[in-house]
Design a protein around this nucleic acid. Structure first.
Length: 267
DNA sequence: AGCCAGGACAAGT
DNA sequence: ACTTGTCATGGC
């Protein structure tokens, strides 16, 4: 039993899309070009998964700090086992481009369909996420046929850019990405937003759920709702919400955001 | 029928 | 630098 860790809470938290509860407390997830089968509460020994689920980080101190905020105290008690995953960079870019103006069940459906159509077969009806080289060669119509709508162009353009910048050839694309952002004198968010189809919200999600920039603070409709109803900030005042997070949640803004996101959707 | 969903873009002030 | 209309799709 790992402390401060619940597979179920992570799977239902909207930060991953390729994990499913296939039967009570049994989960199947696709990542790292493999199919993983895990049970809630079981010990995690696989080195990749230990890193992926951020199990080397002690969340108890972070939670204690955030619990000083009464709203977060309630939220954390609803999802005490939530953690910030470290997902593959390209998968996260693709996933969160798809996520825009969309809902979680349909996001998952679209990711499954693009994987089945263009990803490598793994086993037993499970397919890997398609690599950027495959997607860069597609026509917009190919993805329109799969019902991606206006996101089709964003996916293909971002795949091309990902390749042009050479991330597909990197053993550690995240490290190069972070270095490139710094070399261009840009924040991670700013650099991510140079990709077509990546705006402020999606950039913050990629920074948080892949690059592990835990001060990132993605503001979607749910976070707007929570910041409005529970913190009294004007519903569309994104700037005020960013400032509130920066001043109050500080370097743990992303983690706070994830507790709040889970909490407001759970109600 | 209209609104909502882990929004972004382009054109217009 | 901020506001507005538009963009596909499907569930409710």
């Amino acid at each position: 039993m790992i402390k401060d860790f619940s597979l179920k809470e992570i799977v239902y938290s909207g930060e991953v899309f390729r994990w499913n509860e296939v039967s009570e407390n049994n989960f199947i997830g696709i990542c790292n070009h493999k199919v993983y089968r895990l049970r809630e509460g079981e010990d995690i020994v696989d080195p990749f998964l230990i890193s992926y689920f951020d199990l080397d980080t002690d969340y108890s101190k972070i939670k204690d700090e955030l619990k000083k905020d009464p709203v977060l105290n309630k939220a954390i008690n609803v999802c005490p086992g939530l953690r910030i995953v470290k997902q593959d960079l390209w998968e996260t870019i693709l996933s969160f481009i798809i996520s825009q103006n969309n809902n979680i069940p349909r996001i998952k459906k679209l990711i499954e369909s693009i994987s089945k159509e263009y990803g490598e077969f793994l086993e037993d009806g499970y397919y890997d996420i398609p690599d950027p080289n495959t997607l860069a060669k597609l026509d917009v119509k190919d993805l329109m046929d799969l019902k991606f709508g206006y996101r089709a162009e964003y996916i293909i353009e971002s795949a091309k850019r990902y390749i042009e910048l050479g991330y597909d050839k990197e053993i550690d694309p995240k490290l190069k990405f972070i270095n490139d952002a710094r070399d261009n004198n840009m924040t991670l968010i700013e650099y991510l937003m140079t990709f077509k189809g990546i705006g402020p919200k999606v950039a913050n999600c990629i920074a948080l759920f892949s690059l592990h920039d835990i001060k990132a603070f993605p503001i979607d409709t749910w976070v707007k709702k929570v910041m409005n109803t529970l913190y009294g900030i004007e519903i569309n005042d994104v700037k005020a919400m960013e400032n509130y997070a920066k001043n109050n949640f500080k370097e743990y803004s992303g983690i706070a955001q994830q507790y709040l996101f889970y909490y407001i959707r759970d109600k």
